[in-house]
């Protein structure tokens, strides 16, 4: 069974012009799927629909076979900016999704604390977000996303605000963490290299209204070799994607 299934979703904000039309996609368990498309193409809108913030006019969202269309609080969602609350320490930020679900603060902190080392942010528990670098904040935000739900995560351009060097370091770190925690993830990006480097499959979202125009499977085994992004195969994928966008 697919971890997440989006079936024939059509969405418009004003009931006049559709932003999304007949969008369908599937995410298998442990898979990392990328949603690639131009800015303003409806990628974030699709995430708002999947996460339940917006209800589609047509179509449905299935989480492990259960219909969760229009229900928020089921699928974890990480936005572009890290969105860590500046007035909470890192551990309290990470523990927040569990506190919202009704868990006691102490217990939530303890559970969150078990993952800090794995995410490479051990020692930041008592610090405030302002004391951390952009990369570290993004790691903390991802851990918070993971604490919310270990089932399916939606990541909206999580690394787009970082500089190039930090970004490639984050990519390595990300693949490494994902290899350990096996989180099923859909990932938005407009960076073709990032899409090929990280994902198992790529959906191209295009057109107006937005719809899935193509699907590309990246057959490179994981963990990816370190020079994958310099290889002929990588370039071939890139050429294929550019020709299809």
């Amino acid at each position: 069974m697919a971890a997440l299934e989006v079936k024939n979703v059509t969405f418009s904000y004003d009931n006049l012009t559709n932003v999304l039309e007949n969008v369908s996609l599937t995410l298998h368990e442990g898979e990392l799927v990328c949603l690639l498309g131009v800015s303003g193409g409806g990628k974030t809108t699709l995430f708002n629909v999947i996460s339940g913030l917006n209800r589609p006019q047509q179509g449905s969202v299935l989480l492990n076979g259960r219909d969760v269309t229009g229900q928020s609080g089921k699928i974890s969602y990480m936005l572009q900016k890290d969105m860590l609350l500046p007035y909470r320490t890192i551990e309290d930020n990470v523990a927040l999704p569990m506190i919202i679900k009704g868990m006691k603060k102490k217990e939530a902190r303890k559970i969150a604390g078990e993952h800090f080392a794995q995410f490479g942010i051990d020692g930041t528990q008592k610090k405030y977000p302002a004391e951390l670098s952009g990369g570290m904040r993004q790691r903390a935000a991802l851990l918070r996303t993971y604490m919310f739900s270990a089932e399916v995560a939606l990541l909206d351009e999580p690394f787009s605000a970082l500089d190039t060097l930090t970004k490639s370091e984050m990519h390595r770190w990300y693949l490494d963490v994902m290899d350990k925690i096996k989180l099923s993830t859909i990932f938005i990006t407009h960076d073709i290299d990032e899409a090929i480097l990280l994902s198992d499959r790529i959906y191209l979202l295009g057109g107006k209204p937005g719809t899935i125009t193509d699907e590309i499977v990246i057959r490179e085994p994981k963990p990816r070799r370190s020079d994958f992004n310099l290889s002929q195969e990588f370039l071939a994928y890139k050429r294929e994607i550019i020709s299809k966008i």
């Binding site: 609080g73 974890s76 969602y77 900016k81 007035y87």
Partner: peptide, 29 residues
């Protein structure tokens, strides 16, 4: 309060009261 932060809280299933307590109140201190 940042609208995206409120959206993030909503995506976590936070109630109005929780959004008030964890975001709006500390934000206005």
């Amino acid at each position: 309060v940042d609208a995206d932060t409120v959206n993030l809280m909503r995506s976590m299933g936070a109630s109005r009261l929780q959004i008030f307590r964890y975001v709006k109140l500390p934000n206005s201190l």
